[in-house]
Design a protein around this nucleic acid. Structure first.
Lengths: 139, 139
DNA sequence: TAGACAAATGCAACAATATTGCAAGTTAAA
DNA sequence: TTTAACTTGCAATATTGTTGCATTTGTCTA
């Protein structure tokens, strides 16, 4: 298990287990791209499905990854930025969902911090999903 | 089946059946609020669950309703505006998801038409989801 | 570094959500 | 009114997510 992974787990108060190491490795390799649960199952054929659910839940609870809201049915997860903690997620950036390749990518440059809502509404979190064709599929 | 419902079905090339009439009636009554599949099952206890799936699919295909992207697991649907057709959905407005009452409300006043994406990306549709407490739950 | 305690894992069972095929019933149009 | 296409309801099955419990593993302390 490499140094980055050990550090990330420690910083988020997560015990370092084989499973968590492997899952986190996949997230790090994916970078800005969100990953679905089925995708993880495929890439870790020996992993127990239930443990995977719990691993993702633990990562989310500790602010290491966040669920990505998008069209498409499968639940997606992506690495959080450093501002996320156990107590609160701060992912105000947009997600781009490509209808061709199905990939979902975080677009850090686009944020939703300045949106005005009607009286009486209190916003805790925002999700901006853009759907279309990504730079890879666009030819 | 009232006139509005018949007209809406005809305009979207959908045959008028009892089931479709009842489902559409619920959507019209709900107005700007999105409806989940389980909610529909509750309000139509005699309806066949599978038929309900297919009814919603048909409505979506013909541009009468659209799936609402939001956090929370249950799939939600809401009436499209008039610009939606069989060929393309145009729902550029924001959806507000209340974490207290669980309701999702369309906020027509907030749009996402002016967002700039990186080179090579083509946006076909946008979804802006705001999560928090709605004006009804906020006291 | 050994032991104790808490946390994580793997399995079984189950619940909820969604899809497909097919026979029978219904709608719309000639 | 008859036909052809569409819609419905049922059965079967697939997918996705949850809970309980015994066993194993990681971490902390002595």
């Amino acid at each position: 298990m490499n140094q980055t992974i050990v550090e990330l787990l420690q910083r988020h108060e997560l015990r370092k287990t084989a499973m968590r190491g492997e899952v986190l490795k996949i997230f790090l390799e994916a970078g800005k791209q969100a990953i679905t649960h089925p995708e993880l199952e495929q890439r870790l054929p020996d992993a127990d499905r239930i443990t995977l659910y719990r691993t993702l839940k633990a990562f989310e609870d500790k602010g290491l990854i966040h669920q990505v809201v998008d069209s498409g049915n499968a639940t997606k997860y992506a690495l959080c930025n450093d501002a996320c903690t156990e107590h609160r997620h701060h992912d105000e950036h947009a997600h781009f969902h490509c209808n061709d390749c199905g990939k979902t990518i975080c677009l850090d440059s686009i944020t939703t911090s300045t949106i005005q809502v009607p009286r009486g509404f209190k916003v805790q979190q925002t999700h901006l999903v853009l759907e279309g064709t990504c730079n890879n599929c666009e030819n």
